[in-house]
Design a protein around this nucleic acid. Structure first.
Lengths: 146, 146
DNA sequence: CCGAAGTAGTTGCCTTGACAAATATTGCCC
DNA sequence: GGGCAATATTTGTCAAGGCAACTACTTCGG
């Protein structure tokens, strides 16, 4: 069961990877670009929150994207702690192509699913996440603190 | 949908991580030990195949486990290319504890699932994997080679 | 039997993620 | 207004995975 979830996840990742190759992106790099472009998320912390990674990881992801010339950092004038992200022209061009490609990869993995089955899958995964965060986040486990 | 799968997967990983901490293992390190102990898989290549990672990654995983004193490498006498893995006494002791803990973590994520729902989830994930490998492995995509 | 091809394992270099410590800045309380 | 907690970002260190190059061995074809 655990291994199955891993295989499904990595299979989807590989599919996305293939789709993103023409854009020069990896399977992970599209997400920050999409969040900036489609959702107007424009700070490191907000991106990290939305992507479910920590700020340190996001900083380095942005380093890579910046070195590819896809985005720029600009220190905020109103709160000098925060860095605002903005896509370059090239970044916007790449970002525009992301959504359709990502949807293609997902669609391929669900190619023989009936719409109802997709809903069921989503609902079951959501419940797994809920059950999981109930245990991982608000810790009330009796195993360690009796 | 992609993000959801990622969240479910990482949530399960974190759950397993917590369970394995008392053993001094990470969420990834239990798998090779379990394969050696429960399935008698005892070469690098076989472990890599079962775990769905490449040999290079497995080599380094085994480095870490070996440096923790959980297993030993022994060059095969009959085919001097292959390395046989064997658990140390400590390794066997740790491995014995793995299965119940891993099952606990899975059970927590499926705590409110009816048995039928578990079956459905497994079946849907398996179909995703099948659809995915049909596209990732035997490549007959028309996008690149017309 | 010998050379070519294939296989097992290791290593180098890169991406990605987690966690912790350090820095800079803001906001809040007295 | 000054100290202190909270917040944003960066950097170091580590685990983990992918791919490619390399070594050592085995096997197979002639």
């Amino acid at each position: 069961m655990g291994p199955l979830l891993k295989r499904a996840f990595t299979s989807l990742l590989r599919g996305i990877d293939v789709k993103m190759q023409p854009l020069g992106l990896t399977a992970m790099q599209w997400e920050p670009l999409a969040l900036i472009y489609y959702e107007n998320v424009d700070t490191v912390a907000a991106l990290a929150r939305e992507s479910q990674v920590n700020c340190g990881s996001m900083t380095r992801m942005l380093d890579r994207l910046e070195s590819k010339g896809l985005l720029r950092r600009r220190r905020s004038a109103t709160d000098r702690r925060v860095v605002h992200l903005e896509l370059t022209a090239k970044g916007r061009q790449v970002a525009r192509a992301i959504r359709p490609l990502a949807l293609e990869a997902v669609a391929q993995h669900l190619s023989d699913f009936k719409p109802a089955e997709v809903s069921v899958l989503i609902q079951l995964l959501e419940r797994m996440v809920t059950n999981g965060s109930r245990l991982n986040d608000d810790n009330s486990d009796a195993d360690d603190q009796p």
